[in-house]
Design a binder for these strands. Structure first.
Lengths: 208, 208
DNA sequence: GAGAAACATACAGACAGCATGCATCTCAGC
DNA sequence: GCTGAGATGCATGCTGTCTGTATGTTTCTC
């Protein structure tokens, strides 16, 4: 028996799963899902593969948990930006802007935009409810209900806008001048949104 | 010596590489890049792994060749749609529409949109010149030069529009009513393009 | 101290890539 | 036209690594 402090089972579990999750996140960002071995995760986390398989069913599951945490954090930020605006349509614009800016973080970009679509299949991603795309759609729905923009097929519009933002975030990773490109991207995004609104956005400050 | 027909080395090479490429394409579509083993490709192609490694340096390379062929075919279709219009801006609209419609093909979608970003890194994809994104940008450049739309930061705008189209193509794969959703997506895409044009698109039929 | 939970170790099957050897083709020189 | 040496196409076996499982050992809980 070493001098190791006695810990409750809960504490032990939390310590090892936290260590595994955070090192896994780091490695997934650095080397991608396929490029990261369980051995590497465990070694860096200071546990054995036996411990890993005690807490996670397989490699996909730990990625799913990392991804879910990432999504929830993102959604929280975007939702806050949306709610900070009085006009729902301004909220959509602010949310889109915030999503784009948040996606500049390399870790967010790599995990949520690049690796997730392959590591998880479409249904698994769909299952992680309340993703950013869903949030965007909710914003659009509220904007329509409030009469800010005419009724539209919102599912297709959501995909278009979400895709526009995500692809831009990926591209920004390789831009020579990130600040300037971000500024230009935001200006062009607003143009597209004006098109989506089908008006010059005079404002309509009723909240639902 | 069996009754096997004598073949030139060129013929032999072409036969095996063609077999490998086409079966690889099929398996990549069905099971993805990581989910496809070289053994499976070779078995289905009727050759051994030795033959594979004689013609390709590794698994990534055969994917790259499959992807390149896919891209070239897509670009050709999009370019044709663009050139069929007199007005460059109409060409951009037609090109976007064609790209979206082409991406409905499950094989195209899976290989170019889902697997490629992970199997190949960003630089490898960038290296395969004359991709669809580049084609879109060229169209926008011509439209600006022809005076159809005001000068704009085209790189960000290209990313936005390209991402919008690709994400929609992915989403269409899971739509309940694909035809109706495609119709709605195209109508919303045109709204965004009107926003990008910054005008009501009265037409400007000078070609460069 | 018995049972459960956390963790470690040993192992099996699959896979990518390499090395080496055999089969088939090509072509110069006769 | 024939031949043999070299080049090219292809097959087989091996190695290291990886995921996932089965089973053993330690640590905690009651």
């Amino acid at each position: 028996m070493t001098t190791r402090a006695r810990r409750s089972q809960q504490d032990r579990t939390k310590a090892t799963t936290d260590a595994l999750l955070s090192t896994a996140r780091g490695l997934f960002v650095e080397q991608g899902f396929a490029g990261t071995s369980l051995g590497a995760i465990c070694e860096r986390a200071g546990v054995t593969r036996g411990a890993f398989y005690h807490h996670f069913s397989n490699k996909e599951q730990i990625f799913r948990e990392v991804y879910t945490a990432e999504q929830q954090a993102l959604v929280a930020v975007v939702r806050r930006a949306f709610r900070a605006q009085d006009d729902p349509w301004d909220g959509v614009i602010a949310g889109g802007r915030t999503l784009l800016e948040s996606s500049l973080e390399p870790a967010v970009r790599k995990i949520t935009l690049v690796e997730a679509p392959v590591a998880l299949d479409w249904n698994a991603m769909r299952g992680i409810h309340a993703g950013c795309k869903e949030q965007l759609r909710t914003g659009l729905t509220i904007a329509v209900e409030a009469g800010c923009i005419p009724a539209r097929p919102l599912a297709p519009l959501t995909s278009l806008l979400y895709g526009a933002i995500c692809e831009s975030a990926l591209d920004l990773a390789h831009a020579a001048d990130e600040r300037a490109t971000l500024r230009d991207t935001l200006s062009q995004l607003e143009l597209l949104l004006i098109g989506a609104a089908g008006r010059q956005t005079p404002g309509c400050a009723h909240r639902s």
